[in-house]
Structure formats: C-alpha cells, structure tokens
Amino acid sequence: MSFPFYDSGFWPALALGVLFGLALEGAGFASARKLTAQFTLRDFSVFKVMFTAVIVAATGLWLAEELGLMAPRSVFIPTLYAWAIAVGGALIGAGFAIGGYCPGTSAVGLASGRWDALVFIVGMIAGAAVFAWGFDAISPLYWAAPGPKGQTLDQLLGLPVPAILVAMIAVAAGGFWLGSRLERRFGGPIGSSDVTCGSEGAQPPETGTRPGSMRPS
C-alpha cells in the first residue's frame, strides 16, 4: 500500500474542496463577526477548530507512517523562512482583525452571500499585485534566515512524534478549557442567529443581551 497517490486531478481536488468548504461553513467561519470574535476573546471557535483539525490530521499522518501505509516524509513539508513567515503571518493576523477573514474563510463568506467577503477577495488580489510589483525590493526579506529544508518540531526538539502529539493535545485541552470559560464570561460564543438577523447593512442585533455579557476592558 502506498499513500500518497500524488493525484492532482480535477475531481479529487473539487471533492476535497467541497469537504473543506462544508467544514468551514458548518463551523460558522463564513461570518466575519464570529471569526473576529476570536480576538476579542468572546468566541474561541477559530482556536478550537484549527487545533482539533491539526491534531486529527497530524495523528492520522503519523499512524499512516507507523502502519507502513506511507513512506516517512512523503508529503510536502514547508520550510521555515523565519522573517518572511513571521512578518507575513503577522500581516495576515492584522488583516484578519481589520478585514474579518483569511483567504479560505473569505471563500465560504462569499458563498454565504457576504458582500464584504467579495471586497476582501478583491483586496487580496490588490495586495498580491503590490507584492509582485515590489518583489525585487522584498526579495532579501523573502529569502532571509532559511531553516533546514522541511524541518519538523520532532527534529528541532529531538523528541519522538508521539511526544509532540501528546504535548499538542495537552495544550489544546488547556486552551479549550480556558477558551470556554472566557466565552461564557464575554457572552459568547456567537451563534448562527446572532449573525443572520438583519438582511441588509452592517446592522446585527444588539449583542449585549445574554446574561454575563460584558466587554473586556
């Protein structure tokens, strides 16, 4: 048995994308208000969904290797370019807090009828165009401080993969517990009826109606 199949065809791509889209929409990630409430501590869905997905996929990849279904390191592992990834990641975090989406969630936002997601996508194309236009000047930052090719956490720390997985589960469990406490404190999490009421304009209902709802100072 030899995974991966390295199949880049149209139909598997479309089917996997549909699953991705269904999961993002089902999680509530078509709503910019729900997404950005992660950063006001009112809704920890972004953290919970991402961490759960990473742990499930990482455990599955490890099992596939252990069971001999897949050769070690046969999937694409990105390489660290420390400055580009730190600065780029920070720009995406800042843009998410201002614009309300990241690239994947803007696609399901658009699919759920959100005009702000369409404008966000136009903005992304403009940002990519500015990057391309200034690429010669940006190039030193883009290539600075490269790490070892495809380096993984277990290699960096000299620990076995299961130890990393257990540590990730522990961090996730602590984060979920703390997140749920903060959600209750700040009147979250945001539900589907909180963001779908009001069919026009940026006019959601007043949100401070739940018991215990308050704004952090």
């Binding site: 991705f20 910019a32 991402m50 997905a53 990473v54 996929a57 990105p78 370019y81 580009a84 990834i85 600065v87 780029g88 990641g89 920070a90 720009l91 995406i92 800042a94 843009g95 998410f96 807090a97 201002i98 614009g99 309300g100 989406y101 990241c102 690239p103 994947g104 969630t105 803007s106 702000d116 997601a117 404008v119 966000f120 996508i121 136009v122 903005g123 992304m124 194309i125 403009a126 940002g127 990519a128 165009a129 500015v130 990057f131 391309a132 940006i138 930052l141 883009y142």
Partner: peptide, 26 residues
C-alpha cells in the same frame, strides 16, 4: 476595512508563502 484587511492578507500570504490554510493548518 474589508478591502484594507484583504490587501494586508494578500500581501502577507505571498510573503509567508501561504496562509492560515496552507501554513497554519496544513
């Protein structure tokens, strides 16, 4: 704000060689 945020994300994703999906998740 959606346009400005989108532009920051579009630039940042090219610089980082990926976004929340490609780097953060995958």
């Amino acid at each position: 704000y959606a346009f400005v945020g989108g532009a920051l994300v579009g630039f940042g994703a090219r610089l980082a060689r990926g976004c929340t999906s490609g780097l953060g998740l995958s």
